[in-house]
Amino acid sequence: MREPFVWEEEASIMTLTDWEAHFPGLVAGFTVRLGGESEEPYGSFNLGLHVGDDPEHVVANRKKLAEQVGMPFEAWTCADQVHGNRVCQVTAKGAGKDSLEDVIAGTDGLFTREKGVLLTSFYADCVPLYFLDPASEAIGLAHAGWKGTVGRIAEEMVKALQTHYQAQPGDIRVAIGPSIGGCCYEVDERIMAQVRTSTPNWEPAVSPSAAGTYMLDLRRLNREILLEAGISRANMLVTDWCTSCRTDLFFSHRKEAGPGKMTGRMASYIGWKETEGR
C-alpha cells in the first residue's frame, strides 16, 4: 500500500492525498516541524501553545498552516488534550485558535459536519486518528496516546458519529497518521497490563523487548480496536511515518524531551472549505 500522507520536500504539511482527491472541498493532513517561526528548542513549525514557546510564534505558525490549506485562521478549532477518551461535537468555529483560555476543555476527540471549521489537534509521538463519513459529510479527529488508545477513543468516535449523524461504521473512512512506531515505542508492564484489556486481539501490536519491557505498536492497536468497532479494513489508511525515527521531520517527545528539555508539537487537521453549493 502506498503511503497515504504525502510530503512534498520543503513543505510544512503532509497531505492526506487520497481523501482530498476523492472529496472536493476537504482539507486533511499532518504538519512537519519545518518552515515556521519558532526558535529552538521548538524549531521551527511548532503548533502547540502549551509547551512554553513564544505565543506570537505559535500563532504565526497556525496562521501559516491555515493559509497553506486554504482556510481562514478564524476556522481554527482545538481542544485542551488530556490523554483521555472524551469526544466532543463542534458546532461553532474558532475555539483555542490564539489562546489557551478558550480551548474546548478536557477533550481528545473533536467531530463536526459544519463547513468552514478546521479541526486540529497536537502531537509529538501520539497517534492522530482521522474520521470521515461520506454520507453525512461528518469529520473527526482523535488524539490517541497509550492512555487514549487503551481507553478506546477510536471506538468512542465511531459511536459518536453513529449517534449524531446516523453514520454506518462499515461506511466510515479512517486514516491513522504519523506517530511513534512499534520500532521505537518501548513500554513496561504497568502499561502492558492495560494494553491487554484494550481489545481481545492486542497481541499483534506487541513484541517482547528487554526483560520486562515490550515494543508497542500503537497504530496497530488502534487498527484492531477500529476493526472491532465495525470499521472496514478496506476503508482504513495507515501511515508508515515514525516520529521517533525521523526527528529531522517531526517532533518526538520520547526521543527529544526529558528533564529540562522541551520540544514542539505537530498538528493534525481536517475541515471542509466553505464554498458555493455546499
Rank of each mutant, 00 (worst) to 15 (best):
F5L: 10
W7N: 00
A11Q: 15
H22R: 10
P24A: 04
G29A: 07
L34V: 13
L34R: 10
E39M: 05
E39F: 04
V51C: 05
G52W: 00
K63V: 12
E67H: 15
M71V: 09
F73W: 15
D80E: 13
G84T: 03
V87S: 01
G94W: 09
D102Q: 12
V103L: 15
L110M: 04
F111D: 00
F111P: 00
E114Y: 07
T120P: 02
Y123T: 12
Y123F: 15
V127G: 01
L129G: 06
F131Y: 06
A135K: 09
A135G: 07
A138F: 01
H143S: 06
T149E: 01
E155F: 03
M157K: 13
M157A: 02
A160L: 04
L161V: 14
Q162M: 15
Q162W: 11
Q168F: 11
G170F: 12
I172D: 04
I172M: 12
G181H: 02
G182A: 10
G182C: 10
C184F: 13
V187T: 05
V187K: 03
M192L: 13
A193T: 09
S198P: 01
A205W: 06
A205D: 01
A205M: 04
G212Q: 03
Y214D: 03
R223H: 11
E224Y: 09
E224R: 12
I225F: 07
I225P: 00
I231Y: 06
A234P: 07
A234L: 08
N235Y: 02
N235A: 11
C242G: 11
H253E: 07
R254V: 05
K255F: 06
K255L: 06
E256A: 10
P259S: 03
G260E: 03
G260Y: 01
G264N: 10
S268T: 09
E274I: 05
E276V: 06
R278Y: 07
